[in-house]
Structures are given as structure tokens and as C-alpha cells.
Computed example of a mutant assay.
Amino acid sequence: MTVHGAYRGIPRDDLGYLNSAGRPDVFHRANLPRVGLDDVAALATGVMTSVDLWLNEGDLVTNLTFVSAGTAAGTPTNWWFALYDPTGALMAQTADQTSTAWAADTVKTLALATAQRITRSGKYKAAINVTATTPPTLVGTVGAKPVLSGEANLSQTSGSGLTTTAPATIATPAFKRQVPLVIAT
């Protein structure tokens, strides 16, 4: 066993509560613990926001879930979720929800067009786009810009003028301070 400072346990096991506390005993992966979350303005109309989401080999991802916070979507015209592989290539997208309302403080779980069996453990990207007069705020947190060489953005934006379809790749990502909560089931 590797010793990590004065701690002699397995850090992964000790920190497991961060990903599963208070959640049902069913398959799920989340990018954030359910503590310390708040209302964050993570979206700009027609601009995709994506966050890292660790997935394990063998996971079967059928749905993505985001949660609106204090502000509802105002006059949405298009909105969808998508899953990208570690290289930034699109794996699957949900159906475009067009003008379907998204109220404040509401959980939205959308099915991917095709369920994705994960063949390699790693950091995938879960993405959301809302094209609306006013995009909803989301439940999430605020993250710091990468500091060390090789660190990735916890949240990033890409694209503009997006409507019905997720881009084939995440191109020219830009750092985003607001990190929305996403859950894969």
C-alpha cells in the first residue's frame, strides 16, 4: 500500500461519499458532490457548456441530468444535452427539446439518442446547450482556472449560435468559472 502523508487508507475509498452521499443505490456518476452547490449562471444562449465527468469502463450511460436553479429558461427555442469522449468527439446527443419549458428549481433528465457503453475509463465531457431569450441558471459551483501545467478546465464553453445539433467536436474551448452539476445514469 502506498502511504499518502499521514493517511494510511485508500483515498478513493475514503472520498467515495462525495459521489454517492444521499443518492439511491443505482448506477450514477456525478461531476460534483451534492454539498456546497448554489445557483450559477453557467449558460449563455446558443453557447455549449461542457464539464468533465469521470466514467468507468463498462458503465452504460443512457441519460444525462442537469438541474435548473433560481432562474427558469425564458422563451427557449432549442436545448439539449450531449456526451463527448475524452478526445472531445461527440458520442451521443439527446433530442432537441425545442420550446419545451424548463422551470426554475427543476431536474431535467434526458435520454441520449443511443445509450453509450464506456470502453475505457477516463474523463468524458457532459455538455448542455440552451438557446433562449434567457437561459436558466443551473445548480453548480464556481471553479478556479487551471493553475498547473496539464490541468484541464473544470467547465468550458465552445461554439456559438448553436440550435438543434451538438457540434461533432468540442472546438476551441474557453475556460468557464461556473461549473454545473451533471449526473449520468
Rank of each mutant, 00 (worst) to 15 (best):
T163C: 10
G161A: 01
W80S: 04
D52L: 13
P146Y: 02
A104K: 03
L43A: 08
G58K: 05
D52P: 12
M91W: 05
K123V: 14
A113W: 11
V139H: 11
D85W: 02
D52K: 12
G150R: 09
T106I: 12
T109L: 07
D105V: 10
S50A: 15
T106P: 13
R120P: 13
F81Q: 02
W80P: 01
G46R: 09
P167E: 11
N153I: 07
V26H: 12
I128F: 01
L83M: 11
G161C: 03
V51H: 02
F66M: 01
G159W: 00
A152T: 15
T165C: 03
S99P: 07
S155R: 07
G36W: 05
S121F: 02
A104H: 03
N78E: 04
N129G: 07
V130I: 12
G58Y: 06
L37P: 08
W79T: 04
L90F: 04
L64S: 07
W80L: 07
W80C: 03
I128P: 02
T157M: 03
G36N: 06
V35G: 06
L110E: 06
T100D: 02
W80M: 04
S121M: 01
R117H: 15
L148G: 15
E151P: 10
Q156D: 13
V26T: 15
D105G: 14
V67P: 04
L138D: 00
D59A: 00
D85S: 11
L110V: 11
F81R: 01
G88S: 00
R34I: 14
A69Q: 10
S160C: 10
A69H: 07
